[in-house]
């Protein structure tokens, strides 16, 4: 996959004399020292991230980890203290005001945690907001806005005001507004965090559905690991303004880099993260249902349990058998790594 967005040695220090503090951080001053001795906050600490084209990059971290600060550097709502942000080979930080506005209008749209809709405009008018700013003719803007309202499942609500809608519906408007501008980059800042769990899952499905067809480059911020694992093609975990691990959901769950991440991942349903090709063994001629290597362990367990065979053949994209799994492998993959110690405790 080609890289769409490249973030290089990005630092952000909050405080009146950030530039001077930059030297101290480079020479090894820690976040705590900077806070206690110099009264400056180290928001982002040497971030390096390559975000693939047409994929969903999740940035996960707890509050205060700097994830919202990071996403705002991609469309330069926040200016960095030091570092570079490249998008398709263009340096965002070198753009003039006019170029930056044009970039925001055409290339990168954003969805916000608290929806940030205009309360005095109807759903339709909110959805066409970005198009209006682009300078699109009213008639065409209305047509496109209606299309996207329908795509997010809000047809019939065009003339309602945001205040009359539930949170989930308001965020659908937020999503429609962002999609309507036809930008190739979609920035989502905790977009589903303010919603109830059921509605959140709903919205995740809508997003994944749309993405399978639109293939945008999505940067998705969340504090919820389940959500990160569910929608992320790649995940970067942020702590204290620093990326502590990045990789695919499987890599995060199977090889947590430190105790902090291991602690996070231990209660995760691994069957919904791990894929067959990760745990398969070499082909030993066993018979059974033929399953894709990208299938999730949980789904495979269901199928193997229902089939007469205790094995399944794992196939690659061209229909060749590349390995096998049996029911024990599947159960072991789903079990928590510390399950044995828990049993001993009993």
């Amino acid at each position: 996959m080609t890289t769409k967005i490249e973030i290089k040695s990005l630092y952000k220090i909050f405080g009146p004399d950030a530039a001077a503090m930059m030297e101290k951080v480079r020479s090894g001053t820690t976040k705590e020292q900077l806070n206690d001795e110099f009264n400056h906050v180290l928001g982002l600490n040497n971030i390096n991230l390559e975000i693939p084209d047409q994929g969903i990059q999740v940035v996960m971290g707890l509050s205060g980890s700097g994830k919202s600060t990071l996403i705002r550097h991609i469309n330069r709502l926040i200016e960095p203290t030091s570092g570079e942000v490249w998008i398709d080979g263009v340096n965002v930080l070198a753009m003039s005001d006019a170029e930056l506005r044009d970039f925001r209008r055409q290339r990168a749209s954003m969805v916000f945690q608290k929806f940030a809709l205009l309360p005095h405009r109807t759903v339709l008018e909110n959805t066409q907001y970005g198009l209006e700013i682009q300078g699109l003719a009213e008639k065409e803007a209305k047509k496109r806005a209606r299309h996207w309202i329908e795509r997010v499942g809000l047809a019939g609500y065009e003339e309602n005001y945001p205040g009359q809608l539930s949170g989930g519906m308001q965020q659908r408007v937020g999503l429609a507004r962002a999609l309507a501008t036809d930008a190739d980059i979609l920035l989502m800042d905790e977009a589903f965090s303010a919603l109830d769990p059921l509605i959140r899952t709903d919205m995740q499905n809508i997003l994944l559905d749309l993405q399978s067809e639109l293939h945008k480059t999505i940067v998705f911020i969340t504090h919820d690991l389940e959500e990160a694992l569910r929608i992320g093609d790649r995940i970067a975990i942020l702590r204290d303004g620093r990326v502590i691990q990045q990789g695919t959901p499987q890599q995060i769950v199977l090889k947590p880099k430190d105790d902090y991440i291991a602690d996070f991942t231990k209660d995760i349903n691994r069957g919904r993260v791990i894929r067959l090709k990760t745990i398969m063994k070499s082909d030993n001629g066993q018979q059974g249902p033929e399953l894709s290597g990208d299938m999730l362990v949980e789904d495979a367990a269901q199928l193997v349990t229902d089939s007469p065979s205790s094995h399944a053949r794992v196939m690659d994209g061209e229909g060749r058998c590349v390995g096998v799994v049996n029911i024990t492998d599947l159960i072991r993959a789903m079990a928590r790594p510390d399950i044995e110690s828990r049993i001993e405790d009993l």
Binding site: N75, L77, L100, R101, D102, F103, R104, R105, Q106, A108, S109, M110, F112, Q113, K114, A116, L117, L118, Y129, G130, I133, Q134, R177, T181, L187
Partner: peptide, 18 residues
């Protein structure tokens, strides 16, 4: 005026007059 709404206006590329 809610700062998040203003931020949204900026994020969609509104100029100061808009």
């Amino acid at each position: 005026v809610d700062s998040e709404v203003l931020e949204a206006a900026d994020a969609f590329g509104a100029n100061p007059w808009q």
